[in-house]
């Protein structure tokens, strides 16, 4: 069962803040993060990896990315 963080349209550092808050909340499992810039995709990936999470998948859809984070 995964939970979703929708950070589309938000600029730095909101996508990272929202992702880290979710990571703190659920501690482990799967999080889907939606972002719409390459910078947010990179920043969310870097932040998740720094917390020991794995970026299991990145789906590109037209103007957005969907990242699957797992721990």
């Amino acid at each position: 069962m995964s939970t979703t963080v929708d950070a589309r349209g938000l600029s730095c550092p909101q996508p990272v803040l929202m992702t880290l808050n979710k990571i703190k909340e659920i501690k482990k499992g799967e999080i889907i993060v939606k972002v719409d810039t390459d910078t947010s995709r990179e920043n969310v990936s870097r932040a998740a990896e720094s917390q020991g999470w794995e970026v299991a998948d990145i789906q590109k859809q037209e103007t957005e990315y969907q990242l699957t984070l797992q721990k």
Binding site: C12, P13, V16, L17, L20, T39, E42, R46, A47, S50
Partner: peptide, 18 residues
């Protein structure tokens, strides 16, 4: 994505030095 403000912010907020 070079940013001086982001450099300080990420250090303070996330302890990131990228």
């Amino acid at each position: 994505r070079f940013c001086t403000m982001g450099a300080l912010r990420d250090l303070i907020l996330f302890k990131q030095i990228h």
